[in-house]
Nucleic acid binder design. Sequence first.
DNA 1: CCTTTTTGTAAAAACGTTTACATTTGGATT
DNA 2: AATCCAAATGTAAACGTTTTTACAAAAAGG
Lengths: 336, 336
Amino acid sequence: MTCDITIKDVAKQANVSVATVSRVLNGLDRVSDQTRKKVLKVVKELNYVPNTMAASMITKQTQMLAVVVPEIENPFYTSVIKGTVNVAKERGYNTFVFSTNDSESEEDTFFESSLRRNVDGIVLIGAHKDPVFYQKMNKPVILVDRYIDGCGLDGVIIDNFGGAYEATKYLIEYGHRDIAIITGPQTFNDGTERYWGYQQALKDNGIELVSDYQKHGDWFENNGYQSTKELMKLPKPPTAIFAANNLICQGTIKALRDLDLTIGLDVSLVGFDANDLAEFVKPRVSVVKRPTYEMGTHAAEMLIEKLKQVEKNESFPKKVTLGVELQKFGSVKYLG
Amino acid sequence: MTCDITIKDVAKQANVSVATVSRVLNGLDRVSDQTRKKVLKVVKELNYVPNTMAASMITKQTQMLAVVVPEIENPFYTSVIKGTVNVAKERGYNTFVFSTNDSESEEDTFFESSLRRNVDGIVLIGAHKDPVFYQKMNKPVILVDRYIDGCGLDGVIIDNFGGAYEATKYLIEYGHRDIAIITGPQTFNDGTERYWGYQQALKDNGIELVSDYQKHGDWFENNGYQSTKELMKLPKPPTAIFAANNLICQGTIKALRDLDLTIGLDVSLVGFDANDLAEFVKPRVSVVKRPTYEMGTHAAEMLIEKLKQVEKNESFPKKVTLGVELQKFGSVKYLG
DNA sequence: CCTTTTTGTAAAAACGTTTACATTTGGATT
DNA sequence: AATCCAAATGTAAACGTTTTTACAAAAAGG
């Protein structure tokens, strides 16, 4: 188990040329059975482990991927990472994991190091907002979750609009009119589409938008917590809240608990994306569930597929939208 | 932002030799200010990005680390990963993240690929049990959380014994005698030391061990859930439970909720390691908190420090034990 | 003004592979 | 037995760097 043994040592020991050893190991060219066995025996004896880097210099392929997420401690991203890493492993790729803290400059430093390292491709949940940034990508990239229109890249996203629309419609069907939304910044499609879905559902049912009921903050728990408290302090508080991501939903659940308000009784709640608390509290909180792991696997598969296409047949960008599922539990009160 | 520009292109464009360009970029040898500026200008103009791999072939350093964990979706491990990755990034290293599913064979395949890729060092939460496996490591390795005695490697662990002892003592001081433990396998020090701590605290206080009160399963939530239900079904159920990791604790909380038992009233509970549910429920669950992020940073720092020591001055293995903190909340009833 | 030292730069050899091309081998066909 | 062809193997040039060696030019010292 040492790595200071090179292909030359194997060649010498086996009385063949390095080319032959290489051929045996990569199995591309024909080698006689006799020499194959002889070489493999020596490889085993010496515990020879090929140096991937040296090979990469020739082949121009590193068999390395990168997956870039805003925050490695958010379970949603971890799930995407796991999906990507697993598929990559299956296909013989190793994966770098980067966490950008949703900062453009940290993402920039990542891109430089991924360039230096010649990663073959990137699964990216990007921090950059400008399509121009994405246009000048010189490597295969699959965007996940966030998609920048006009960037020219492939992407795997989910049906944010549909999920939010269904969630809101569900509240309306249960008789709610005063429906609040707590959501993140309107920077990316995740924010905008969920907000649109909410808006559209209200419009389609003839419910007027109330600006006090719309809380646009960040995507973190504290936004959910504070916004919920503010909402419930209003002269006429909403009867239902749509929490537009996992952390916000957790914040809302905590705030309602601290306000001594019972979910599904005093206030109705629907979340977006699964989370520990939503599953724990009684009644369990209804959520729009999205296929997080599958987003990761799908992206990895698309990426590796793309790598195989020798020709860069500049096809049109492919955007895959995965469906979501509204899971109904007891957190929504029927107002009749 | 292309990577097909090599040091030769820069050299040609700047009318210097490749050696000079290399010297400018690495800043080791002396270069006149004039040529330095000239070269840097061309570097910028051409958007030259050095190829790390080619450099690695010479320097024998890849500036790549690996961090290996059993399960990337467990928040404890994610926190360790984050610590390691952040320190690595600061020091100019990129980090591979591997998840082994706690399987020895998956760990083996990882080791081979890390060998092929010539990672400089490894932060490892290992799946292997046999010290012999660790003894034949040919790369700098820092073990985290789990430490195999006699493996000859450096490690960063926490005070499992002390934490478990304190937790149990705390329960005893509050008047409890019938104290159960739900813990994982006794394969590694994490399991054994926590169990010993529990045992010792009982012994030191003259409390006899009851085998029915000791649940040894795996480290997952379902073990906590099922074991709790079994415990509470006993003719004489325990008055207090020590849940020996984060997931088990979550399982216990859920089981008690489903059994309609109130924490801190019907049953007392202390957990090991923070978790969402312990922080959420009222009363909040007391836990032994461990410095997860710091375990990652500390390990990375030790590793990088080790890499700097040119001489492999085969010193004795260094085992660092980080302290834990018992955080007391309302989950333990005072029995007087 | 000549010698010695310092400074800046270039040339070339490595690093461990892959691969295009060249050569050898051996069996089949004349 | 001579010839040919395919299969098997060897040779050597790449890949993009770093680093050692060498050498010229400039600076310093007598």
